[in-house]
Design a protein around this nucleic acid. Structure first.
Lengths: 113, 113
DNA sequence: TGTTAATATTCGCTACTTCGAATATACTAT
DNA sequence: ATAGTATATTCGAAGTAGCGAATATTAACA
């Protein structure tokens, strides 16, 4: 696999490597929203939201459409939604193994004197 | 959706947001390898490889097994492989649309006297 | 034309990431 | 014990990402 392709992939991952940008993508899951609607739903600073949207645009994660005064955003490729769904399940399975690990530790602790 | 879950997801993406770490994960796709084998296959600096492996370990993307002198790494959860597979298709579809865009631009350019 | 509303960009600051060099740790074998 | 090999950690420098405040752009409409 070429270095250029890996560079490209890592940039996509980087684009999603922020909780606010994940929140934006998840919120766009059910259809397009204007920047203003996103700001309200997610309670973001205007400038901050615009910066995050610029990053998502630059990496073609989202796509935008101007309508008069407003700019509507939507997800470019639904495959991304699928990825986020897998990660949710992944998160919970990891959580439960972490919990059992903690339980083991607690159990071991209780044997001490 | 909870902030904790978004934080978690963004940390996984962050863990993969580097070409070297993508290379490591892709190389481990077909089974475990020692740190040394990874370093040789990917032509990495020893310290650098170890730093990247530490990041992947911290985020539980990979798991390690010590055998004498060596440390063998493998991918912790096959769900991640699935994510990478989905993203591979995503990357190619994005790549090809980017390429066609570039071709259009080139085409347009060729009309300029 | 001037004012307001929606969104984007720039700026300075702080915090994080990445790197290679150096050093530390851990295991093996002599 | 000591030498050698495999891997990990620490350190400081250089680069990059994130933030809010301020400012710029664009469109709508009086």
């Amino acid at each position: 696999m070429s270095d250029a392709l890996r560079q490209f992939k890592s940039e996509i991952f980087q684009a999603l490597a922020h909780p606010t940008r994940i929140a934006i993508v998840e919120t766009l899951r059910d259809g397009e929203l204007s920047a203003g609607q996103l700001i309200e739903k997610l309670d973001l600073e205007q400038a901050n939201a615009s910066q995050h949207l610029a990053i998502l645009r630059a990496k073609h994660v989202v796509v935008n459409r101007k309508a008069g005064n407003q700019v509507f955003y939507s997800i470019r490729d639904p495959a991304l939604i699928k990825v986020l769904d897998i990660l949710r399940r992944y998160f919970y399975s990891q959580l439960s193994s972490t919990v059992s690990m903690l339980e083991e530790v607690a159990q071991a602790g209780s044997f001490k004197k």
